[in-house]
Design a protein around this nucleic acid. Structure first.
Length: 384
RNA sequence: GGACGGGUGGGUGAGUGGCUAAAACCAGCAGACUGUAAAUCUGCCGCUCCUUGCGGGCUACGGAGGUUCGAAUCCUCCCCCGUCCA
């Protein structure tokens, strides 16, 4: 069946290995999803993404709604066809923009009123509207609109966000099911997503996190996400909140921790039972000359690499590391050449996807904990 | 030979008596980045001393003198550069 999630292996730590199927192919979990907000993973062609082994990427409801417009994408055959991406696509709802565009929006129970960061025009994003846009895009996994808040947050603010997120999730679910029912058995043919994920909020309050999770579980989503983390709080807190929530989540359904993480943190989240993650870090840091390697971070613009003939990461098998030197990459960055961003992104995304491959293997062999501590050791030591 | 215009910190270039170790930009050095308003943003960027303070000393706006309490800024001469006229 083309819509399925199955846990195939578990680890003493709590980590799970599994397989996630969509109409646009299957992928193994735990999975890392590169972020392609505006229907492109910045710096990478779809060819490159496929070659790197990416089977699912992220796109953004809010951004694609503003430009080029979801109706245009629908008209052109859906997002997969539009961007020529054969793999799976998860679409974020715009809930993160509630957080990141906080100066440009007003929030009520009805929805979020945004002033476009592109032209200042005003738009109302409701839970139903966010679902509708994602249906138009034809995404494989749709996220509900949630209220993502800053951390640390006062308790009353966090409570309000939990309440509103549950309210919105219920409406989003009803809308989604109704539309799916209307489409009937033609749903798949019409490219409608079968997967809709809820998003747990609750800031750094364990009881609110539990409350949020329980409320969302009552609505009953095929998959569950944890949001509002890794937005400034310490890593230990991120882990604590994640653990609080994953304890409550059904074991047979996928769990997605949104927006994480640093290379050395990924295995920690997997150990807490997370199946999916996404993060802009590998792509953004790459554009900013920060290279992730098996030996730690390499700030490739630094003068110390001017004559360094080694590859970015001597232990890396990616095409960039096979062919180019640190000295060359440093030069490209200093020269402001677009190729610098392209090559660095290629490597960093490879690095992240490779971390996940290693983690999946480690789960198979039961030595995830070892992998995790090794990563932390390398990354606390700083660049070589 | 003459007439104008101009010489400012690594570069471009503001500044025409004190608020100027001297704008801004670039280059350089370092840092940040976690469901992307990010090929972005931040700090440093003459030398030096210390009790690291919106601290002290020194050097600095082509060169040398001078005026002034005080000069990158005004005056004199000189040296360069550009444009134009012979």
């Amino acid at each position: 069946m083309s819509f399925a999630f199955e846990v195939t292996q578990t680890d003493p730590t709590g980590a799970r290995r599994g397989k996630f199927s969509t109409p646009h192919g299957a992928f193994e979990t735990p999975a890392f999803m590169p972020v392609g907000t505006a229907a492109t993973v910045k710096g990478l062609t779809q060819d490159a993404l496929e070659q790197l082994g990416a089977r699912i990427i992220l796109a953004n409801t809010y951004h694609l709604y503003l430009r080029p417009g979801h109706e245009l994408i629908r008209k052109l055959g859906g997002l997969h066809k539009f961007m020529s991406w054969p793999g799976a696509i998860l679409t974020d709802s715009g809930g993160f923009q509630v957080f990141s565009l906080s100066d440009l929006r007003k929030i009520t129970d009805e929805g979020v009123r945004f002033r476009s960061h592109l032209d200042g025009s005003e738009h109302l994003l409701t839970p139903e509207k966010a679902a509708e846009i994602q249906l138009a895009l034809g995404s494989d996994i749709a996220m509900v609109l949630d209220e993502c808040i800053e951390t640390p947050a006062p308790r009353d603010i966090a409570e309000a966000a939990v309440r509103r997120t549950s309210l919105w999730a219920k409406r989003a679910r009803e809308y989604f099911l109704q539309k799916s029912q209307e489409a009937g058995s033609a749903a798949t043919a019409a490219g409608l997503p079968q997967w809709q994920f809820a998003i747990v909020q609750g800031a750094t309050f364990a009881d609110l996190r539990r409350q949020s999770a329980r409320q969302l579980l009552d609505i009953d989503f095929p998959g569950n996400a944890i949001g509002g983390l890794a937005v400034g709080e310490p890593h230990a807190m991120t882990c604590e909140m994640t653990a609080v929530v994953t304890e409550l989540l059904p074991k047979d359904r996928p769990r997605y921790l949104m927006g994480v993480g640093r290379p050395e943190q990924i295995a920690d989240y997997v150990a807490l039972g997370i199946d999916m993650m996404d993060c802009v870090l590998p792509t953004r840091a790459a554009r900013h000359a920060c290279i992730y390697t098996s030996e730690g971070r390499v700030l490739i613009k630094n003068a110390r690499y001017a004559e360094d003939q080694r590859p970015l990461d001597p232990a890396c098998a990616c095409g960039v590391c096979k062919r180019y030197t640190r000295a060359y990459l440093r030069h490209l960055f200093h020269a402001g050449e677009i190729t610098a961003a392209i090559l660095a992104t290629h490597h960093n995304v490879h690095f992240y996807l490779d971390i996940m491959r290693q983690i999946r293997e480690a789960i198979g062999f039961g030595n995830l904990a070892k992998f995790s501590s090794a990563m932390h050791a390398r990354y606390s030591a700083g660049p070589a």
